[in-house]
Simulated scan of single mutants.
Amino acid sequence: MTLADLDRSARSVGLALRGAFHPDPEDGAPEGTGTLVLLGPDEPRFWDVFTASQEYRDGQRHPLDRWSKRVAATVASPLNAKAIFPYDGPPYAPFLRWADRSGASWSSPVGLLVHSEAGLFISFRAALALPQQLDLPSPAQSLCPSCETRPCETACPVGALAPGKDYDVPACIAHIRSPEGASCRNGCLVRRACPVSARFGRREAQSAFHMRAFLGE
């Protein structure tokens, strides 16, 4: 088993490998974990897979979380791996720490997580704690220092996300719910402004789905 094998298995169900590392005791991984693997949506294919699923179509609450648990289990089971989810808690698993440890993500100028392939569209649906230590790739190099225009710094119309300040969630929500915030309903303008995000292929319908969940609609 290699990380490439695991990635192929994940992509067969609509997920993809988004980072991996060998955890230390202070990382909060389950005891006996040799490799902790982060899984996120395999975009843009993910949206078609998810919207065709029973969870999306049954009208019940939390369709994406339920879908994630089902498909992650199909990847974890043959590997004798434990599946961990960011929304199970409290206590909640330290996914941001794990993303940083993976060497595939880093902090953006506005504080949001950036991924080497997904940009500011990075999200994690599950982590797998494998008993064996798999060979790891070299850490990715942050692309932010070489970004000449840094559009993420000025993309938010109300400055809710900006360098040197905490995320102003109330200002963000108020703007999105206003007539002036209509364009934000199709996805956060800051996330969409990132040049890496623009190459990732995130579907607008998917971004709108997440925004409705963010607003509690």
Score class of each variant (00 low, 15 high):
P170Y: 06
V49Q: 10
A126I: 02
E31S: 14
R97S: 13
T149Q: 14
G19P: 05
V169W: 12
E26H: 14
D24Q: 15
L113P: 09
P131I: 06
Q132Y: 09
G32S: 01
R66T: 05
I122H: 15
L3F: 08
K82R: 15
C172E: 09
E153W: 08
A208I: 03
Y87G: 13
R61N: 14
R185H: 00
A10L: 00
S53H: 02
C194W: 06
P90A: 11
A198Q: 15
E204L: 13
P109F: 10
H210C: 07
C194L: 02
A129P: 04
W98S: 08
F121T: 10
P44E: 04
A29R: 05
P63Y: 09
L17D: 00
A73F: 00
S9R: 15
H62A: 15
S77T: 14
Y92N: 04
S53V: 07
P163D: 10
P163E: 12
M211A: 03
P78F: 10
D7Q: 02
Q60W: 13
H22E: 02
Y167L: 08
Q141K: 15
Q132G: 11
G119S: 00
Q133L: 11
E180F: 08
A83E: 03
S207P: 03
F21M: 09
G216K: 03
L96M: 13
F21I: 05
T74Y: 10
A73V: 01
A76N: 01
V158Q: 05
R177V: 05
F95N: 10
S207C: 13
T149C: 10
L130N: 05
P137R: 10
A140M: 01
P139E: 11
P91E: 10
D168N: 01
E153D: 10
E31L: 12
G201V: 02
R11P: 06
F209M: 02
T51M: 07
L64M: 12
K165G: 07
A73M: 06
W67S: 09
F95Q: 06
R185Q: 11
G19K: 09
A198R: 15
C172K: 03
A76H: 05
C172Y: 01
V196C: 09
P30G: 03
T51Q: 06
R8G: 12
P151N: 08
R212M: 10
R202F: 13
V71A: 06
L17W: 06
R11Y: 08
P163W: 12
E180A: 15
R8L: 13
